[in-house]
């Protein structure tokens, strides 16, 4: 707030998850790019400070293949290892223990999916996995359904951040349930991020206008015709949405309200 009580967006407009403070409110994925060089350029254009990464078996038949860490460097970005492809709590714990050894990071993204058609989260198993991970010393940002009841259970179990989907992963359908998202934002004391479903810049702006702390996206940038330009668009959209949220929007009215005075007409 400035000295006349107006909220201002300054360098101090940061957000904090699990004790780590960030300025950028746009987290980007590193999947689906045509190559790691494009991926790195898009992450830079997005102004991202955090990138999500996956853990997979190394290719033993060709160990000279390009490696993510040679392009998207862990000294430039905070790596957020995910559990994509895990369908049980035990799979998720095993995957993230390996990630912790590979990178040395405790901050992770949990996602336990139900089936491969819609990739919607299995919330019962997600909650169980969250408890296993917290007992194992992880700080866990949790991908979840847009259900405020389950979101609260995750927070009470110790989630570091609540990350409801806007729409199914990779669908690009935007925010499907603004009402639920608003309820989750209102009740949560930990950061809330929209994770999945963003298709274009306006979707990211909507998420931020609702009061999300940040937005996480992958396909919307990676599958754009020009990923680097879209990454820049997303960066602006997240800032615009954030500023609009802080500025406080005008009330919605049923009827028109003229901007030019009606008095003094000739």
């Amino acid at each position: 707030m400035d000295d006349i009580g107006t909220p201002t967006l300054s360098a101090a407009d940061t957000w904090t998850v699990a004790g780590r403070t960030f300025t950028s409110r746009l987290i980007v994925g590193t999947g689906k790019y045509k190559d790691y060089a494009t991926n790195a350029a898009a992450a830079e254009a997005a102004g991202a400070e955090i990138v999500t990464v996956a853990i997979r078996r190394v290719n033993l038949s060709d160990p000279s293949q390009p490696m993510l860490v040679d392009h998207v460097k862990p000294d430039r970005f905070t790596f957020l290892p995910n559990t994509a492809g895990c369908f049980t709590g035990e799979d998720a714990v095993r995957t993230l223990r390996l990630a912790r050894e590979a990178g040395g990071w405790n901050l992770v993204k949990l996602e336990v999916l139900s089936n491969t058609k819609h990739l919607l989260p299995d919330m019962e198993e997600t909650l169980r996995a969250l408890k296993l991970l917290i007992a194992d010393g992880f700080e866990v940002m949790v991908y979840c359904s847009d259900d405020p009841v389950y979101a609260l259970k995750l927070e009470e179990a110790g989630a570091a951040a609540i990350m409801p989907l806007g729409a199914p992963i990779g669908s690009g359908r935007g925010i499907q349930n603004m009402l639920n998202l608003g309820l989750i934002i209102e009740q949560s004391k930990v950061p809330v991020l929209v994770d999945a479903g963003v298709g274009t810049a306006s979707d990211a702006a909507v998420a931020m206008e609702l009061g999300c702390d940040a937005v996480l996206m992958n396909t919307a940038i990676a599958e754009a015709r020009d990923p680097i330009l879209m990454a820049s668009a997303m960066r602006h959209a997240v800032i615009a949405g954030r500023e609009a949220f802080l500025a406080g929007r005008m009330p919605k009215r049923m009827y028109a309200d003229p901007s030019s005075p009606l008095a003094g007409l000739i």
């Binding site: 996956a54 853990i55 993510l68 990779g170």
Partner: peptide, 10 residues
């Protein structure tokens, strides 16, 4: 033995 590394992911 399982040997893994970081790859691109969302």
């Amino acid at each position: 033995i399982e040997i893994v590394h970081f790859i691109g992911g969302g």
